[in-house]
């Protein structure tokens, strides 16, 4: 565990708690893509199946359990409790366009041809693109609420910090996982445009809106 990974994990935790808190507090999930949240739920569930087979640390187990629980709670709020506020007209990204190719790729490119390993690989690939429905929704409506922007910024920061973590681990531990690194870089690149808008708008107290 190095500082970059720790801060990255905390940023990840902050992001998902922030989104859950926003939905709960405002009693509304307007502007939030339920599809991105379903895919993140799928990511955590398929990746953390090793909770049952592989103990790493109390920290690791606790974080995994929290991620799964928060993801399920968020999906529940969007699709059940506050369903009336869910903006499904703008959440039109087709999940199968991501899940099917990503599933195929996980079968073809993985470290080990076992069920658990393929599911882990699937979750890594899926996480790299799971935010697309959310970004697509923002590009459709042309704006995002400020808390949603903070959520995306915290989530993107987690990804960027993980890259620094991998550089650190490569140099100091000789460790690298090419699948995680390539997928992680793809994922981080997807946030770049958003980061730019966040820094130029949200940090200056403006709402995030896209140029017409």
């Amino acid at each position: 565990m190095n500082i970059f990974r720790l801060v990255g994990d905390l940023s990840h935790l902050l992001a998902i708690l922030l989104l859950l808190w926003k939905i709960w507090k405002t009693r509304s999930c307007a502007g939030v893509s339920g599809k991105s949240q379903i895919m993140f739920g799928l990511v955590y569930i398929t990746r953390y199946l090793d909770l049952f087979t592989n103990f790493i640390s109390i920290y690791n187990t606790t974080m995994k359990a929290i991620f799964i629980a928060v993801a399920i709670a968020t999906i529940y709020l969007i699709y059940f409790k506050f369903k009336a506020t869910y903006d499904s007209n703008h959440d039109t990204f087709r999940m199968e366009f991501l899940i099917v190719p990503v599933g195929g790729l996980a079968f073809l490119v993985n470290h080990d041809f076992t069920a658990l390993e393929i599911l882990w690989t699937f979750s890594i690939y899926l996480e790299s693109v799971a935010i697309l429905p959310q970004l697509f929704m923002i590009s459709k409506t042309g704006e995002a609420e400020t808390i949603t922007s903070h959520y995306l910024f915290a989530l993107g920061s987690y990804r960027a910090l993980y890259i620094v973590n991998w550089v650190y681990r490569y140099y100091f531990e000789g460790f690298f996982d090419l699948i995680a690194i390539v997928a992680g870089c793809v994922q981080t690149i997807l946030y770049c445009d958003f980061f730019y808008l966040y820094v130029t708008k949200v940090m200056h107290g403006k709402k995030l809106s896209l140029p017409a």
């Binding site: 790493i56 470290h111 080990d112 390993e117 882990w120 993980y162």
Partner: peptide, 10 residues
């Protein structure tokens, strides 16, 4: 990578 690839990151 050997069998039982260990994933210690989140």
């Amino acid at each position: 990578h050997a069998h039982g690839h260990k994933h210690d990151e989140l």
